[in-house]
């Protein structure tokens, strides 16, 4: 079962503490080493993002940045796991690391199964 997870937070939180970066690096390495992690990466900030929307039969384009305070995805990971619970556990581990290394940080991880279009 393939999953994609997004780590989401508000954009005004600043840079992560080095301890978290290090801990996350180790966690990712472990996930690559046990064969469950397929790919991971970061996403550009909303300042550089664009949304196009269809409403009232009109397509409109809006460029970032957007109103602050909204939780947005800052990074993603694609994993191959044997159950939904395993994907959730991987995500929970990420939040445990944030709790330990980034005092006051709040955010979420969105966990979605990927279905192939083909």
């Amino acid at each position: 079962m393939r999953y994609i997870t997004f780590v989401k937070m508000t954009e005004d939180v600043g840079d992560p503490p080095p301890a978290l970066v290090e801990a996350m690096g180790k966690e990712m390495q472990a996930a690559f080493a046990d064969g469950s992690m397929i790919e991971a990466g970061g996403l550009s900030g909303m300042r550089d993002s664009t949304e196009i929307r269809l409403a009232d039969a009109t397509i409109t384009q809006t460029d970032g940045p957007y109103a602050e305070g909204k939780e947005v995805a800052g990074g993603y990971a694609i994993t191959e796991v044997r159950s939904h619970e395993e994907a959730v556990e991987g995500a929970r581990r990420v939040l445990e690391l944030h709790l330990e290394h980034w005092p006051g940080w709040e955010g979420s991880v969105e966990i979605r199964q990927m279905f192939s279009s083909q």
Binding site: D34, S36, R82, S83, E85, E86, V88, E89
Partner: peptide, 9 residues
């Protein structure tokens, strides 16, 4: 199931 998944990891 969640506990088993943690254990399995």
């Amino acid at each position: 199931d969640a506990i088993t998944a943690v254990w399995r990891r």
